[in-house]
Simulated assay, not measured.
Amino acid sequence: MRIIKTTAKTIYTKSGIPGVDYALNQYVGCQFACKYCYAKFICKWKPYGDWGTWVEVKTNAPELARKRVHGEVFMSSLSDPYQPIERELKLTRKTLQMMDKRNKLSILTKSPLVVRDIDLFKLFDDIEVGLTINSFEGKEKQIIEPFTPSQKLRIEALKTLKDEGIKNYGFISPIIPGITDIEAIIKETKGIVDYHSFEVLNLKGAGRKFVEILKENFPESYEIMINEDKFWEFVKELIALIKHLDIKAEGIEVHREGWEVIEVK
């Protein structure tokens, strides 16, 4: 793993993510190297090699994070803030320590390391912490995201956050037909999350290499994702399932550009 240390001019960048005003990325690049990761596009501007082989470390992120910003801050859009290197560098922790605690903050991770910083989360006026859960185990996990912590550890982290009074959420993503077991996820997390958020796989964002992985290893899932009629039937069934499971499903929206960009909220 190549580590590139840099200094940044700013740490709060305007975000195009719906509902998010600023993104904060103390790291760029991610050791988890999920095959579908939507942040891979950044490799066009970062000539360090393939996604998952490098991490850029913004060494002055804590100092830049002192600023008070108005609006929601999302940590992180181009990395996982609690990827393995964080255990040693503690850059995320140092950044949280220096942040203005009046900033509204949302954190998303796949790592149970997040519970290490509960003491800091309690200092913020408005904070929520989410863990991505997608039920990938066994063959699916080995192919799609082999280097991430297990689902069991992620769910345990959510429970710890809940027990400590930290607002939390389960981010069910990516939802892939025939692979992501939404019903099992919701049953396992019921009562230990404040809410669930849903996102169907974005084929365009996942990239051509992942489309080939899907086609080769999960042909039935691939056929549903690329076939217009089959896809919308899947979405219809998905929404019905979410409502049946007694989730707060008011205002569910499905957006699609071409056949790629799909979100269920």
Rank of each mutant, 00 (worst) to 15 (best):
R102D: 06
Y48A: 02
P62Y: 02
K122E: 12
K265G: 00
Q31L: 06
D126A: 08
T10R: 13
L89I: 15
E183A: 14
C37H: 04
T95D: 04
C34A: 07
A33M: 02
R87L: 14
I185A: 08
G19W: 08
K265Q: 07
P112S: 06
G207T: 09
N60K: 09
K40F: 04
L108Q: 08
T13I: 15
F231I: 04
S15R: 06
L89V: 04
R2P: 00
E63H: 10
L89H: 02
V69H: 02
G191F: 03
E137R: 08
P81L: 00
K243V: 13
G165T: 10
I143S: 02
P219L: 04
E263M: 12
K141T: 05
L203Q: 09
Y38M: 09
Y27T: 12
I213R: 06
F231P: 05
I262C: 10
E253P: 05
I118E: 00
K187W: 05
T180V: 10
F74E: 07
V57H: 04
I239Q: 12
K104R: 13
N25Q: 07
I186N: 03
L238N: 07
R2V: 05
Y22E: 00
V200G: 06
K141E: 13
E212A: 10
E199H: 11
E88P: 00
P146W: 04
C37T: 06
K58L: 11
N217Y: 14
C30P: 07
I166A: 02
E223A: 09
I226E: 10
P219I: 13
V211H: 10
N60G: 10
Q83L: 02
N103G: 05
R102N: 11
V28G: 01
L203K: 11
V57P: 00
D50Q: 11
A33K: 07
S77H: 11
S197W: 14
I143H: 02
L89W: 03
V55T: 07
N25Y: 07
E63A: 13
S106C: 08
N217I: 09
M75S: 09
K14I: 14
V235L: 12
F210I: 15
E183N: 12
L91M: 10
